[in-house]
Design a protein around this nucleic acid. Structure first.
Lengths: 133, 133
DNA sequence: TATTGTTATACTCTATAACTATA
DNA sequence: TATAGTTATAGAGTATAACAATA
């Protein structure tokens, strides 16, 4: 339990730091992480990141201005815009993840399998902050 | 592990919600929680909450304007100001905590001892976000 | 000289409400 | 009518740099 508490504290701080190293805020890093799993509509992002849809507009605006994502119209519903990660966006996510893996590697008390389990738990907890019950 | 992940997600969301019920942001609730353990200098708060000292000025300004805390000069160092919880401030923290205990009580899979351990872990993880390693 | 707290500044995140264009 | 995305707005958090008072 103590190890987990320490790990969690370190994880949150390190994610923010790893994102900052890429000149990204935690919210931006989190958004890019979500998009790494595939394109998502604005509305879906809002639900996943559990914030109002109007916030996503601003967050995506800033990411798009930097060429990390781009909007493309949905072929099936002309109201919907899908947000897609650009190659630079993928590179940014991977850079953050590489940094996080270095953090995990620092937990000497764990073996590789435990480390993998813990990393999975932490990232799911962090990225899926929404409680959809 | 899965239970813990779910609990953590719920805890973060519920803390924010419990604070919002008292018309407080998560940062304000967190600050009050820290002060519940006793008065603290501005500089100490900044370190504990792992943010720049200049932010604390604003956070305490807003809490003081609402009568939840007040600044008092340190008797030993005239540069230092100690922030103290007022009775209303204590009431607010207790209201948040009562709400959180209700959340913990909802975890039916746990017995009382496990619940206490988990609550302690979660609150320490949440309140002490700083990694002083 | 170094430290404490503050101020000024600028940016990001956040929710609410009102709008448009679709469905 | 309802939904997706945007805009306008206002408040809160955040870091940086510069400052006065004190150590």
């Amino acid at each position: 339990m103590e190890l987990l508490a320490v790990s969690l504290r370190a994880y949150y701080a390190d994610f923010t730091e790893a994102a900052a190293a890429e000149n990204l805020t935690a919210s931006q890093g989190k958004t890019l992480s979500v998009l790494r799993q595939g394109p998502a509509a604005m509305r879906v992002l809002a639900r996943t990141l559990s914030c109002d849809a109007s916030n996503i507009t601003g967050i995506i605006d800033r990411l798009e201005k930097r060429g990390l994502v781009h909007r493309e119209p949905s072929p099936t519903d002309r109201r919907v815009k899908n947000v897609v990660l650009t190659p630079e966006g993928e590179r940014a996510v991977d850079a953050i993840r590489a940094n996080m893996h270095a953090t995990m590697a620092g937990l000497d008390a764990l073996d590789d399998a435990e480390r993998a389990t813990l990393h999975d738990l932490l990232s799911r907890t962090f990225e899926a902050a929404a409680v959809t019950a």
